[in-house]
Design a protein around this nucleic acid. Structure first.
Lengths: 343, 343
DNA sequence: GGAGCGACTGCAAAGGTTTGCAGTGGAACT
DNA sequence: AGTTCCACTGCAAACCTTTGCAGTCGCTCC
């Protein structure tokens, strides 16, 4: 029923191989013949059958994209950017949701491997060794994590976290908490490393305490409010914006005001963080750029196989209303870091 | 390089057709033979090649899902639910983003048609006639819209909108505005119809004014604040939560307080609406259920072809903090409708 | 004891496309 | 004029599965 290459061939009086070449190897066919073929193809509404093409070429022109939770506001901008970038190159994207489950994550790679040219593993929680093993089954690009020997795209959260600490120290805070994320998160480790090794900490200028692990959700933030209060932090950097927002809510319930009593900084800059009250000071992650970059890497290293480049994208501190002067209340907020201003 | 059915056949000493049947028609092969085949298949890590299977059976076991904007918080829960439902039945989902562009929307259907068993068109903006034409190219299920002759899943926003009006009238509001969404939106028409034909309007008890069309975004809401103020509404129902949140922001900038001066009701109940201040009173749309139902319809009507059922899912008013007493200030908030309470 | 049946398995075609190879015709070169 | 080359096109195999048909074998039934 659907038009095939054969129909086009018959209708334009050439052999099917000529039709095939008119599409996939234009320089091998006479210009005149080619336009005629393309015209009839157009007229008949012919679209090449990708399954057949994949069968013989081994390339599906599909990409798999595996995330832990589509509904987590961190991911959609990344998915959107990746999809767009892929489609510009005539690729389509399978989106799969592991539902935060490591076993599902692994199974998804198996399931997708045969029908894609490569897979984008976003924020995977699997062990390095497992990921490495999986990479023999399908070309992988890891996003938001680094795995030895595999191409990856990460955002330099360490830098952003240090900028956040600079900002807080500049505001006069001396007792800062890091509200940690889930166990096994690469990002979480990076932030913690960056924060606990910040120069101000080493000089004893400020003290940093780590709380966690916590669920990387609003509820996780709410639940942590009590611990934050008890620990006596005057400023907190949260693993992500959702937790930061939850924390603000939780503190509010305890009668602690943000930024009056405690300053809160998030990470990610999800769309939401501009809409809450107070608007959230946060480390902006270039998720869209990461999505594009990941697709780029996957498709280019399809050719020269085994590119293991590790791309790191810059992050940026966005100062809004959830951070304010520390206990002394007289510090100059602009003295450190190179924060981005925002209207 | 990858293991094929042939490798399994050789390794287990049977013909390839037996291996094939061991997977796709178990009752046709001896139980003993079958387990042996499955075992060797497992050992060799064999996964059937979907492209080859699709080529001969004509079924790809893939589904296309086209939305206007993945990053719009309305969609991810729907996508997530659809993906899950699909995978439970061994289907995979192509997600595509039309970027609010009608032409892209149409092109995506063409592009996907050949490599999927059906397409979920979510909130399409295309003309009925075009959609109908497209349905000859691929099995379609329309979500969030009704198209004559096509299966669809909608949420009964009309009911929710009326409940919202009831709620507002119960609070003593007499001059209510509807902040309309984008031109061409089916949902928008439904809400407007429901609202302007509400019984209280017909009896002259309240007056309803329509503003719009507006961009269905936060900015659209912000921009509309001035018009709302000028029109003198004491309560506003917005096309969606994003606009409602924007409107609250815009009103705030004008010194108008919500819910003190003006009450605002959203539609959708996106995750965000629980996190803003004030928390948003809104019509909860069962987007996850809609995603599941749409996949259901698509896959079941794959068999008995041409089911054109139109499913309508119930909506629900969720009362939070963005609505309060009207000008008189003495009305009983609970007197009308059957709103859902929330902690 | 021969026919018939049932359970199982093998054979081979088919599905739409790509691609190495061979063939054609004409132009350029010797 | 004969050779070589080039641009183009046709031929047919191959990719991996599924599936209708036919074959084998051991039973049951009359």
């Amino acid at each position: 029923m659907p038009t095939t290459i054969r129909d086009v061939a018959r209708a334009s009086g050439v052999h099917i191989s000529t039709v095939s070449r008119a599409f996939s190897a234009p320089h091998l066919v006479n210009a005149e013949t080619r336009t005629k073929v393309l015209e009839t193809a157009e007229k008949l509404g012919y679209r090449p059958n990708r399954a057949a093409r994949a069968l013989i070429t081994g390339r599906t022109h599909n990409i798999g994209l595996i995330v832990a939770d589509i509904a987590n506001p961190f991911f959609p901008p990344l998915i959107k950017a990746a999809e767009r970038e892929a489609r510009l190159r005539d690729y389509h994207i399978f989106v799969a949701d592991s539902n935060e489950d490591v076993a599902v994550e692994e199974e998804l790679v198996h399931a997708l491997a045969k029908q894609v040219d490569g897979i984008l593993l976003v924020s995977p929680r699997l062990a390095n060794s497992v990921i490495e093993a999986l990479s023999r089954e399908a070309a992988l690009v890891v996003v938001n994590r680094q795995v030895p020997g595999l191409p990856s795209v990460v955002m330099d959260v360490g830098h952003g976290a240090r900028a956040a600490v600079d900002h807080l120290v500049g505001l006069g805070h001396k007792k800062i908490g890091f509200l940690g994320g889930p166990r096994g998160s690469w990002t979480n480790r990076e932030i913690r490393k960056a924060v606990t090794s910040a120069s101000q900490v080493r000089t004893g200028e400020v003290e940093i305490g780590v709380l966690g692990p916590n669920a990387p959700t609003e509820d996780g933030g709410i639940a942590a409010a009590e611990h934050v209060q008890r620990a006596g932090f005057t400023a907190v950097l949260a693993y992500n914006d959702l937790m930061a927002i939850g924390l603000i809510e939780g503190l509010d319930r305890l009668g602690v005001r943000v930024p009056g009593d405690v300053s809160v900084v998030g990470i990610d800059d999800i769309a939401l963080s501009r809409l809450t009250r107070p608007r959230l000071t946060t480390v902006a992650n270039p998720t869209a750029a990461a999505g594009r970059a990941a697709v780029d890497m996957l498709l280019q290293h399809g050719d020269d196989r085994r590119t293991t480049a590790q791309v790191s994208l810059a992050t940026d501190l966005v100062i809004r209303d959830s951070t304010g002067p520390g206990p002394q209340g007289d510090a100059d907020p602009g003295e450190r870091g190179t924060p981005r201003a925002e209207a």
